[in-house]
């Protein structure tokens, strides 16, 4: 953080200018104000709530503004099992989020179906929506989710496109 941006007037600022690019400034802003859309369907959601609450405090990383409307959020956290009846709902919520958007697949069930190798469960949401960061664990601890958010932040800072954008332009 700590990126100062002075727009114009080089003569008056006397050496206090930092030159940068628009992309970098925008990415810096984005990475430190991710607004997650929680999609909690199972026990991973309990860990996600713990991550947001005071003990682990995701607001230290600028991501405490949970939006329950996909139209106001840019980070989808899929935490829990997704059944074949729920998948169209998840897909619709993903589609409703404005670009650019990132997806975290939290836990074994969202990433690969986990122990539920059954008739009704999607064996990994990445078959249907693009996933940027996977978290292993059953359920993962809050530290793992924080680590995933930091990895998304690194991705944004590096200027890499979200997986969703890559999928569209490939």
């Amino acid at each position: 953080m700590g990126l100062d941006f002075v727009g114009q007037g080089a003569a008056e600022t006397d050496g206090n200018i930092i030159t940068t690019t628009i992309d970098k400034v925008v990415n810096w802003g984005r990475k430190n104000s991710l607004w997650p859309m929680p999609f909690g369907t199972a026990c991973c959601a309990i860990e996600m709530m713990a991550t947001l609450a005071s003990k682990f405090d995701l607001s230290r990383f600028g991501s405490e503004a949970i939006r329950f409307s996909p139209r106001q959020s840019d980070l989808l956290i899929v935490s829990g099992r997704i059944s074949i009846k729920m998948m169209p709902v998840l897909k619709r919520i993903y589609d409703q989020m404005p670009d650019p958007k990132w997806v975290i697949s939290m836990g074994a069930c969202a990433s690969c179906g986990g122990v539920f190798d059954t008739y009704t469960l999607i064996q990994g949401v990445d078959q249907f929506i693009p996933v940027d960061v996977y978290i292993p664990g059953c359920p993962p601890r809050p530290e793992d989710l924080i680590d995933a958010v930091l990895q998304v932040q690194q991705k944004i800072a590096s200027g890499a496109s979200p997986k969703g954008v890559e999928a569209v332009y490939e």
């Binding site: 074949i84 619709r92 190798d117 008739y119 249907f128």
Partner: peptide, 16 residues
């Protein structure tokens, strides 16, 4: 247990 392949071949357009 793993069904008749419902989880692999479902149609978003049909479901929506």
């Amino acid at each position: 247990l793993r069904g008749h392949g419902e989880r692999e071949r479902f149609n978003f357009d049909k479901q929506n």
